[in-house]
Amino acid sequence: MITIGKLKLKNPVMVASGTFGYAREFEDFLDLKKLGAIVTKTITLKPRQGNPMPRICETASGMLNAIGLQNEGIENFINEKLPYLAKIGTSVIVSISGNNAEEFSRLAKRLDKEKSVDGIELNISCPNIQAKGLVAQCPDATYEVVEAVRKATDKTIITKLSPNVTDIVGIAKCACNAGSDAVSLVNTFLGMVIDINTEKPKLANVTGGLSGPCIKPIALRMVWEVAKNIDKPVIGMGGIMSAEDAIEFLLAGAKAVQVGTANFVEPGICEKIIKGIDKWTKKKS
């Protein structure tokens, strides 16, 4: 049993936001209730269309995306997606994003009324929205957002950090001091790909977030740095494609992991990762 805030997880494997839709998309490929937790696609107050196409591009051992938080908005999420998630039988963590602390707070307040929501992940680190900078790049803004959400809910708060910073430990500390129950890291690295035939960027948004196995060593280093410097649980992610990858994150100090891009490549992969970790744990003890 893994404890994160008020969450009790049956195993340390969660699915990362934005890589698993609202879980139903994957019901044919794995037994969803076996997951440690499901983190939903990020929800905003109002529906968002997302960015223009093309939005994704393959890179060597990775992918670049600039989806732009396309979602139907909080009310549609609660009416149309949450009832299915509630019936699965595992922890449901809703990822939220807002333009300011007040929007984050309103989202959290709304979710606080929903019994089937077990936790809230604050996506303060999406690199693909038109804003001056990321909340997760500024210690004060991070503190302000987390503090506002903490006032709005007693549910478990996980703050998702950006790797596009100089001092990720500092930001993690701000999130924890403001009342976050845990931090999850890393979100994607800001990147870019140019098509040499058209001489234009491959993404319409020009830049996008890099994920997949190519970021794993950097993500692992950041998880290790944060884990040894804060007291709250760290949820590690970044390019996990196998149980071995996940175990590396656990050894670096993460209490749980999130599997992201791998879900796109192999929709049933989380079950394999859960089994692999279980086997490793038993062998160790």
């Binding site: 998309e25 997302g50 196409m53 093309p54 939005r55 994704i56 393959e58 992918m63 995306n65 796109f264």
Partner: peptide, 23 residues
């Protein structure tokens, strides 16, 4: 034909716009 990562409606990488604005 569109570039897609997952093929099952999760990555939202293969959006097609309809005339009525629907995605």
């Amino acid at each position: 034909e569109e570039t897609m990562a997952c093929g099952i409606g999760a990555c939202l990488g293969c959006v097609v716009k309809l005339k009525n604005g629907e995605q």
